[in-house]
Design a protein around this nucleic acid. Structure first.
Length: 591
DNA sequence: GCCGTTTTCGGCCCGACTGTTTTCAGTCG
């Protein structure tokens, strides 16, 4: 059991509880216990979709409130209670003792599940990723019964993928922790101004650490508060104006206190990207100026003596202006043409964080979502949206209980009824689908059913390893269907878990252009399309939809990260169809 | 271990694919 929380006098988080429940499920699956694994897995999913910390749930309503969480019964409620009260769970510790392996890491290796992990542990004493890589490289896995050369190759590939993505955090996951740190620091009265710089401010899809800049006249107080924050497990540096800590989650956080007069220069410097900064300095030099993290300086000769005079630095806008540039939004500072565009006055007017009016991909309890249509609609309204499309899965995705035509029709009737209730609220629920693309590019629902819907999304959920030409042809065929409006998560990647399937994205974008199909910017942990693809779409005029892919009411907050991704792809409001009013959006879709 | 217009027991989202086999176990979505 993970005792960090208690060692550092901190409450057990949902994330920790989720991991333990998931691990228990895997342990039970290892022992081939029937049904229980699914029960634990289900609860782990529920916990991950909760909008409230379990500590709060428990304080609010005790074990009875825990029991109200879907999938939590008497026994799991007791487990959670034990975890909340003592920070440990004896049942879990026993399982762990019997098979001491780093389950959550090993199951992250593609093609490895509990059964194979068990064999690897029993035959080759594999406990963690390092062990696994060693035996795979030694060719020992191929010789195991049930394994072979290809399994070994797959495992090595999986390890490689995990290693590449380690040490960085998905911004979608890290942001809530970063925001909590921000809130904590802002509550310190000596903090005059504060901003998180670095890749977080540029909204990169993954971030390695968080760089926080603070203006304050009392740096020492700030440093002391910072290093004593809840959740800090290691203080790497504790200086006068700079400190660095590691959080329990593994996130590194740096803080710097800077004087007001150089705040803008420091913010610019610490926001990066490095390449962008280098170019800005070159521009400064060409103008006879010098730019560093303290400011923008002119070299002036005063009475025969050369001296540096600060000409800008208190804010970023002043620095860009003095350099003869239009202000460049942080999301664009990647040295991919933003400087030239800025000089030429041709920077895009980026879509704003409050610009979305709708969400065109949501799932409900009809399939694998955990909230009802009504609940999702209410949550969308609270999130400031005017419409959502309900796009539950289709029958091929059996594990989700995907809809067939009769159930789709039933769902449509329910949507009609709910829409009547919401009529006065200027909110509309659209009928939609996330229809599976089958192997040959045909669809999991017949055209007669598709044409009754407001929004038809299609996506690939199977056969990720088709050769590129086949996969591309499959997708192109699917979006050539005259009823298909949007291609959901076009490359199939899950950041940190799985790369994109082999696909010629340029060919897909061309086909989207020809067929008038919209491509999705999926805002969940897929962030798919990615920034450079978005930019290609914007360039050729393929329209985009930024969708949450929400499976629960609080997941509409993910839309922010989809917007960030679209901004990194230079997208404007005119490029994003769900930033348009519902009638205009519907009018644009294929008829 | 959970759940109940099939309610206190007896069911439990399941079909497709892969790589290993030579009829199937394990993984994935």
């Amino acid at each position: 059991m993970d005792l960090y929380a208690y060692r550092y006098n901190r409450k057990v988080t949902n994330e920790e509880i989720e991991k333990i429940l998931r691990d228990i499920g895997e342990y039970l699956a290892m022992q081939e216990v029937p049904f229980k694994p699914r029960a634990y897995e289900k609860v782990a999913d529920s916990v991950s979709e909760l909008g409230e910390e379990l500590t709060e749930t428990y304080e609010r309503g005790g074990s009875k409130a825990l029991r109200e969480i879907p999938g939590v019964g008497a026994s799991i409620a007791e487990h959670i209670e034990e975890l909340l009260k003592t920070g440990r769970l004896k049942y879990y510790e026993q399982l762990k003792k019997a098979t001491p392996v780093d389950l959550s890491t090993l199951t992250n290796v593609e093609s490895l599940g509990p059964k194979k992990i068990k064999i690897l542990y029993e035959k080759l004493h594999v406990r963690n990723l390092v062990d696994l890589e060693r035996v795979a490289n030694a060719g020992k896995i191929a010789k195991l019964p049930g394994f072979g050369g290809k399994s070994e190759e797959k495992i090595l590939k999986g390890i490689e993928f995990l290693k590449r993505s380690s040490g960085r955090f998905l911004i979608v996951h890290a942001m809530s922790e970063i925001r909590a740190i921000e809130r904590y620091l802002r509550s310190v009265k000596e903090v005059e101004q504060l901003e998180v710089a670095g890749s977080v401010r540029r909204r990169k899809e993954t971030v390695g650490d968080a760089d926080i800049l603070v203006i304050s006249n009392h740096p020492k107080v700030i440093m002391d508060h910072f290093t004593a924050m809840p959740g800090v497990v290691n203080v790497a540096a504790h200086g006068e104006t700079r400190s660095a800590v590691k959080m329990k989650s593994g996130l590194n956080v740096d803080i710097r206190v800077v004087p007001r007069e150089s705040y803008g220069a420091a913010l610019n410097y610490f926001t990066g990207s490095k390449e962008h900064n280098v170019e800005m300095r070159k521009i400064a030099i060409r103008k006879g100026l010098k730019l560093n993290e303290y400011g923008l300086f002119a070299l002036k000769e005063i009475r025969g003596r050369k001296d540096e005079v600060k000409v800008a630095g208190e804010n970023e806008e002043g620095i860009y202006e003095t350099l003869g540039l239009h202000y460049i939004e942080p999301e664009l500072r990647e040295m991919t043409g933003e400087i030239e565009a800025s000089v030429a006055g041709k920077l895009p007017h980026l879509i704003g964080y409050g610009d979305l009016l709708g969400d065109l991909q949501t799932q409900t309890t009809w399939t694998d979502g955990s909230s009802s249509i009504t609940e999702m609609a209410r949550a969308a309204m609270d999130a400031g949206l005017e419409y959502i499309a309900i796009t539950d899965h289709t029958k091929r995705l059996a594990m989700t209980g995907g809809l067939d035509v009769p159930r789709l029709i039933l769902q449509g009737k329910e949507i009609d009824a709910i829409n009547l209730k919401f009529k006065t609220k200027n909110f509309r629920i659209l009928k939609g689908t996330e229809c599976d693309i089958l192997k040959d590019g045909s669809l999991d629902l017949p055209d007669e059913a598709l044409k009754t819907l407001d929004v038809v999304g299609v996506s690939v959920h199977s056969l990720f390893n088709l050769p590129e030409p086949e996969q591309t042809a499959r997708i192109v065929k699917a979006i050539s269907n005259p009823h298909v409006d949007i291609l959901f998560h076009p490359t199939g990647r899950r950041i940190g878990k799985r790369g994109p399937y082999p696909v010629d994205i340029d060919a897909v974008i061309r086909a989207a252009k020809e067929t008038g199909t919209v491509l999705e910017v999926n805002a969940s942990d897929r962030l798919d399309l990615k920034d450079e693809h978005i930019r290609k779409c914007v360039h050729v005029g393929v329209k985009l939809a930024i969708n949450s892919d929400a499976h629960a009411i609080h997941e509409f907050t993910d839309l922010e990260f989809g917007i960030a991704q679209a901004r990194r792809g230079w997208a404007e409001k005119k490029d994003i169809i769900n930033a348009w009013p519902v009638e205009k959006m519907l009018g644009f879709l294929k008829r």
